[in-house]
Design a protein around this nucleic acid. Sequence first.
DNA 1: GAAAAGCAAATGTCAGACATTTTACCGCGC
DNA 2: GCGCGGTAAAATGTCTGACATTTGCTTTTC
Lengths: 264, 264
Amino acid sequence: MTLASLPRHQGGADGLARLLGQALLAGRWRPGETFPRERDLCEHFAVSRNQVRNALATLVALGLIERTAGRGSVVCEIDEWHLLDPLVSAWMSDIETPDAQLLREIFAFRHSAEPAVARLAAQAAEAEDLERLEVAYRGMRRTAGRPEASAQHAEHDVAFHTAIYRASHNLVWRQMGHLLRPSIVALIQRSQAHLQPHPDGLEDSLVRHGRLLEAIRGRDADAAEAAAADVLRRTAVDLGIVADAASRPATVPVAEPNAKERSA
Amino acid sequence: MTLASLPRHQGGADGLARLLGQALLAGRWRPGETFPRERDLCEHFAVSRNQVRNALATLVALGLIERTAGRGSVVCEIDEWHLLDPLVSAWMSDIETPDAQLLREIFAFRHSAEPAVARLAAQAAEAEDLERLEVAYRGMRRTAGRPEASAQHAEHDVAFHTAIYRASHNLVWRQMGHLLRPSIVALIQRSQAHLQPHPDGLEDSLVRHGRLLEAIRGRDADAAEAAAADVLRRTAVDLGIVADAASRPATVPVAEPNAKERSA
DNA sequence: GAAAAGCAAATGTCAGACATTTTACCGCGC
DNA sequence: GCGCGGTAAAATGTCTGACATTTGCTTTTC
């Protein structure tokens, strides 16, 4: 694609990196394609080469592009994007239409990981962790079902799950919490666009979150693991990540190996 | 600390970032301490300010240091280090003495996560995944018990677990495989230094790895999950991450919330 | 026709000057 | 003495122009 469709004025210091990074995450250049040259970027955004080079260096550090002298900059394969970097996560959650395949991968990860995180949380949670969980849960209840407050609802939802990752008291899991925001924000937007595929689903979702909270408060690791799986199951079915739970209620079957190409 | 104890000549282009980054990861500056000024780095390493600024920009992108105009560079808290970045992982596995606490956190993560990964792998593995697993397993057998081949043994070990993460066919899990190398390399070094705390442990470990491989090959998700937990359990006990398995053989108890300060 | 030389285009590097932010110090007034 | 403001120093951030290096393509030459 060309530069023409990008806004000419970015925010501030790191605004340029963010603008270009989000364009990449939104898939406006496909992997393998060549990225615009430094000189063109300077002209289009009317900034010095320094700023352009700083922004591009950031994109390189995030594994989004690769630069070689004499050849130019090419967009990396999605496999090489540093999805786990906080910057990438933050940028992704601000995009209107992130890559659908990418979101499914993130959600599939959560579906398999979050039960284990909940188990740890039930074993390691302290008072302040429970406090955070409760505040977020109350916030979710307060904003449930009100379309005008859906953004706040998403924030409370993010806060709830982030609190679980924090409560694991493990450095790695805590840092992985950055993935939650893009995943949850995209889900909320999707559910708004689709005019609530499950009208009663919201109350149901709240009940499940409540059970998870109670399990963690009661330090019941097994119950927490099961409750976390329960929270994610319905959405996983909606996204086509797992088969319908009704058919095999006991275990959590996962899609066949080659099911990636299926449409959402 | 001062600059004096760092070698004066780094490798090449990104060698300076690597040198400084590894010094940070090894804990030679403590969080909160101020990092050397650009000018001092230029003089000490006899390079241009450009190179120094590039290296420091990399460290900033990795969350290792924070820079503000007029004040200088300060080392970030360990919480803010981007442990999941491939660069950080690669640097860490090349350090002789990484932070012990950090390694315990990484291993605790693996202990809670890898069973879930193995479950996914058993459901999604394809022929080439099994091929990779087998090659790595045979390599482990071949190099077992030979002290002169311990480095290769570690590499095969890394390859085995990396193959499991890859076999999950999930983007996020696959990227998380970068954490394996530092964790495994450190363990091997440790076991060498301690003169094999479990002389029969090596054969035992191989048997457990073999069972995990068989479970994945047989697409038995439950068995794979159990086998993965089994592979990690003994080492987890050694590191003080979980209580002795003999006391509570059924479940996998985890340390108390405030057990972080315990020495290794 | 193939290999070598040359040219153009892209990124990488350097050096110097200047801008901006922060901190510390000093003096002044109350 | 205490606080306040102002100035200067020190650190990082930015700009600019020139040059170096790598790469790919073109042209030349045998």
